[in-house]
Design a protein around this nucleic acid. Structure first.
Ligand SMILES: [Mn+2]
Ligand SMILES: [Mn+2]
Ligand SMILES: [Zn+2]
Ligand SMILES: [Zn+2]
Lengths: 158, 158
DNA sequence: AATGGTAATGGAACCCATTACCATAAGGAG
DNA sequence: CTCCTTATGGTAATGGGTTCCATTACCATT
């Protein structure tokens, strides 16, 4: 049941984490694990509940604190899809192959990950980032791209 | 003081609004005016206060309701820059020349509008939107692009 | 093993932007 | 003017997210 190859994945945080002077505690491990295992867009409470099933001692406050920390260090992305809560996603797995953008249905809230067309996007993004960095003297570290519209189902009724 | 050329601008909502069966009331006018006159990223309360100076009768609730309506009809964009409140911006003036993207400093919250490099972006966006529409059967109506980083000032201290 | 200082934690109190209510005031068609 | 729908404002409630503070876990030294 427990995918054994996860063990490998569990390692790659270690470096980045302790490297920045933070402790890799059980709670933090647990939260990272939950994020690593899920392919959905989890809210803080979602994560809290999942973590809670295995580590009932972990409090919601710690989840919030840890998430903030993870976002700060760049390990996790924080999104706002318009329902009142923030959503979190591991920024990328051991192999940096998870980067993607989002497609959001403004009617039902459905969110679709997509990685198609990224090649061209990446190319342009890099150029744009470079240009913007220079012109506005910003050190750009990240970007957010989301498309909004109506999914097939929600379009199915005038 | 009152820019008289605004009169012209005030007209173009009329159509879209009444066309959709909504009344163009004084409150709504006032809110649209405030949005049209400001070049900043106003929060609901910002708008409320500005409107309040001229129309003390307008309540905060109405501001929220109106903003939601305006967002729904596409007249206004709603943004989340990471401070706890939503920000609103007229989607575009009479001449559709205001569309822009954002550059956000993750340290101090500064937000910069930019319209440079948009040409290429638009080109790619259109292609991407077309592709995504087809592949995921989404009717794409809008997009959001933001770059995150550190502004010159915030970078000025390790 | 005992000690001491710092980082981390949990639970409850709190904050505050946004919503839900509900009673009242317009707007407008006939 | 009358009836009916839409819009409004004030206030109470909601609910994610934070702050506080007393308690623990961690780690390096005596
Ligand atoms: Mn995603
Ligand atoms: Mn802007
Ligand atoms: Zn939908
Ligand atoms: Zn800054």
């Amino acid at each position: 049941m427990k995918a054994p190859h996860r063990r490998r994945g569990a390692m790659w945080w270690h470096g980045k984490f302790k490297g920045m002077g933070y402790r890799l505690t059980t709670s933090r491990q647990a939260i990272l694990d939950v994020l690593g295992e899920s392919s959905e867009h989890l809210s803080a409470e979602d994560i809290y509940l999942k973590v809670h099933r295995i580590h009932p001692g972990v409090g919601l406050t710690t989840v919030y604190r840890t998430l903030e920390l993870l976002v700060q260090t760049g390990l996790v992305f924080k999104f706002d899809f318009g329902d009142g809560r923030a959503r979190y996603e591991l920024s990328e797995g051991p192999k940096g192959a998870r980067h993607h953008h989002h497609l959001v249905c403004t009617a039902c809230g459905r969110v679709v990950d997509y990685t198609d067309f990224i090649d061209e996007e990446i190319e342009l993004l890099n150029r744009t980032e470079k240009g913007l960095s220079a012109k506005y003297d910003f050190k750009i570290t990240n970007h957010l791209i989301q498309f909004y519209g109506l999914c097939n189902e929600c379009r199915g009724r005038s």
